[in-house]
Simulated scan of single mutants.
Amino acid sequence: MAAERLTTEVRQQLGLGRILPLGEAADGVWVAEEAALAVLHRSVPGARLSAVRLDPSGPRATAESAVPAPAGALPPGPLTLTANLAMYADRPLPAAADEVRRILLAAAEGELGLPLEYVDLRVTELVEADGAGGVRRREESGPREGAPAPGREPTARGADRDGRTAGAGAEQEEAADRVARAVLAVEGVVGLAPTQGPAFSHVAAGPRFSAVRIEGDPVAGPCHVLLRVTVSATRRVLDTARAAGAAAREALGVSGGVTAAVLVAAVDRR
């Protein structure tokens, strides 16, 4: 039964791309790759990134998380970004690439809290400025990697809490509802995000992943809470997620101990 649930969670989280660490090992926070890449893409409007990939900088740099991680999540530790870069044809390429590199590093830290250590860019295309000052590619391709899927909207505040764990008893259901209310009151939390990612429109992934999953005894403890949230772009993602985890722990107040892991499924720009 546990193996079946783990398989379901991994399949459902694949719809968000890989699960990347935010902050440090003690924070217990992760972000969906799709959400992180959307923020990074928006930080460089004068250039175009493609074939973007975020990977651990090395096995020796990773750390063990202080809390149980979401299924399939990368371990905490510094990351390296590799990408192809399309640049203006009339700009000095080395200086322009260095500027994009600095912008990406600053956005990763300032907007996300993503532990981005190194950015490896390959200039693979030259572009021309259009009449409106934008960028016109010499060859247009498909949708940009990391862009949100068309028609996919984050869960609105309070629209669908669905904090109940499948098969949970009344105590766990009540505890999940209590946690959901506390998390939704956190500044920067737009809503809970139980919905599946776009990849699951063609996958029979089983029961929907709950936005609040409680494992263990929420009354006497110990227990662990896994949250899946949508946050606002007006506040650093890591700070909001940390506050959401703290709110979940406080809402339970279990004497036997409670841990919380937070997975940021989307970053809402509204």
Rank of each mutant, 00 (worst) to 15 (best):
238 L>V: 00
254 V>T: 12
67 V>Q: 04
25 A>I: 03
245 G>E: 01
9 E>R: 15
64 E>V: 07
244 A>C: 04
255 S>D: 05
185 A>N: 12
242 R>D: 00
39 V>M: 15
152 R>P: 00
166 A>T: 00
77 G>C: 04
9 E>F: 00
220 A>P: 01
158 G>N: 10
177 D>M: 11
42 R>T: 07
135 V>T: 09
56 P>I: 03
64 E>F: 04
24 E>C: 12
105 L>T: 03
260 A>S: 14
156 A>M: 14
17 G>L: 10
181 R>H: 14
256 G>M: 15
202 H>V: 12
183 V>A: 09
103 I>K: 09
79 L>S: 05
99 E>C: 04
67 V>S: 07
9 E>H: 12
117 E>S: 15
193 A>H: 12
153 E>F: 03
149 A>F: 07
196 Q>S: 14
58 G>C: 05
122 R>D: 15
211 A>R: 02
152 R>L: 06
257 G>W: 13
197 G>Y: 13
266 A>R: 15
9 E>I: 04
40 L>A: 02
19 I>R: 10
144 R>S: 13
80 T>E: 10
38 A>Q: 11
215 E>F: 05
139 E>F: 01
41 H>I: 01
111 E>P: 00
161 R>W: 01
191 G>L: 03
117 E>I: 04
163 G>S: 06
87 M>G: 06
20 L>M: 01
70 P>K: 08
135 V>Q: 14
6 L>K: 15
82 T>S: 15
139 E>P: 00
204 A>Q: 01
168 A>V: 04
39 V>C: 09
236 R>H: 03
158 G>I: 10
199 A>V: 04
14 L>N: 14
100 V>L: 09
24 E>R: 15
170 A>R: 15
174 E>W: 11
90 D>P: 00
178 R>Y: 07
134 G>I: 09
197 G>R: 11
156 A>N: 10
15 G>Q: 07
209 F>E: 07
254 V>M: 12
76 P>Q: 08
77 G>D: 00
70 P>L: 08
233 A>I: 04
17 G>E: 10
72 G>A: 14
162 D>V: 05
80 T>N: 10
